[in-house]
Design a protein around this nucleic acid. Structure first.
Length: 289
DNA sequence: AACCTCACCTGCGGGC
DNA sequence: TGCCCGCAGGTGAGGT
């Protein structure tokens, strides 16, 4: 599912091919995916404009247009953004942005969860998002301050886009494994050292996945239709019953924060158990990148 | 205010 | 073979 590394891969692929190009046609094949402000005609607003920027914020794709408006695309679960000829329409095509030189940006989405919107006020549109996890602003002291009173699980907190913009189920589980923190641990019970390890683990996990061009477990492909490689580097996600790469204990799955959560019961004990654990078992796990 | 549950969709795989 | 059911998980609305 597209999380930060997948969206980053798509955006970095699109940028050199789309920036500077004119949008010569807009086709809406599934009107329900558009979320437009009242009295705004999205298609006519976009038509004829030139793309001045292709960026990412959290899991959102932000396409800047030369009329001052921005096209925002969220892939949600199964959305894809593909650079293809303007015809024929690929499977599950929901919208098409035709560009000059016989190229088109196709938005495809089996489940129609994805959303497209336009805005002239980017700050308001992105206002609810927390910091970028790969930015300097996102560190242990930010997490400690932000989660000081949070009694919910750390897994739930990491999925909250106002805590960190761009983390989803896969990378929450992977980062918690690297930081050796059980996903059901209360966020406010983490120690300063654990916040340090978690912030570092989130950055390392996301950067490793970007280097691997994202994780393909079901629908994700890049802008050219190719799968990512990070599924081969996953430590715990969707590995229930398989040996932990550190200690070989079978990976467990349980439902935490309403999501399937994968963890090693030995490397990621609850805080109480961790304090009782002998030091030789507290070995550090590393990214497989 | 903080947090949880559910609806939104469709394809796929397992069980029978 | 074919049917049915559960599951996948990002987000926001609505409830506690």
């Amino acid at each position: 599912m597209p999380e930060l590394p997948e969206v980053e891969t798509i955006v970095s692929d699109l940028r050199p091919q789309v920036q500077g190009r004119q949008i010569t046609g807009v086709r809406s094949l599934s009107p329900e995916i558009w979320e437009l402000p009242a009295d705004v005609d999205g298609c006519s607003l976009i038509l004829g404009t030139r793309v001045v920027a292709v960026q990412r914020r959290g899991k959102l794709i932000v396409i800047g247009l030369d009329n001052g408006w921005h096209l925002l695309i969220h892939l949600r679960m199964t959305g894809q953004l593909l650079l293809l000829p303007p015809a024929p329409a690929p499977r599950y095509a929901r919208a098409c942005f035709e560009l000059d030189q016989s190229l088109a940006l196709w938005f495809c989405d089996v489940r129609r969860f994805g959303r497209i919107t336009v805005t002239s006020d980017l700050n308001t549109a992105l206002g609810r998002l927390g910091p970028e996890p790969l930015s300097a602003q996102f560190d242990a002291s930010f997490l400690a301050r932000r989660l000081h009173f949070a009694r919910r699980s750390i897994k739930s907190a990491l999925l909250d886009q106002s805590v960190a913009a761009g983390i989803g189920n896969i990378y929450a589980d992977e980062a918690l494994f690297v930081a050796r923190i059980h996903p059901a641990t209360r966020a406010c019970s983490l120690t300063g050292e654990q916040f340090q390890e978690l912030a570092a683990a989130i950055k390392a996990t996301l950067q490793c996945a970007i280097n691997n061009r994202g994780t393909t477990v079901a629908n994700y492909v890049d802008a050219n239709g190719n799968p990512g490689h990070h599924q081969y580097a996953l430590n715990v996600y969707r590995r229930e019953g398989k040996p932990c790469p550190i200690c070989e204990t079978p990976i467990q799955r349980s439902r935490i924060a309403g999501r399937s959560s994968y963890f090693c019961p030995r490397c990621q004990p609850h805080n109480e158990a961790a304090r009782a654990m002998p030091p030789e078992h507290r070995q550090r796990s590393t990214c497989q990148c």
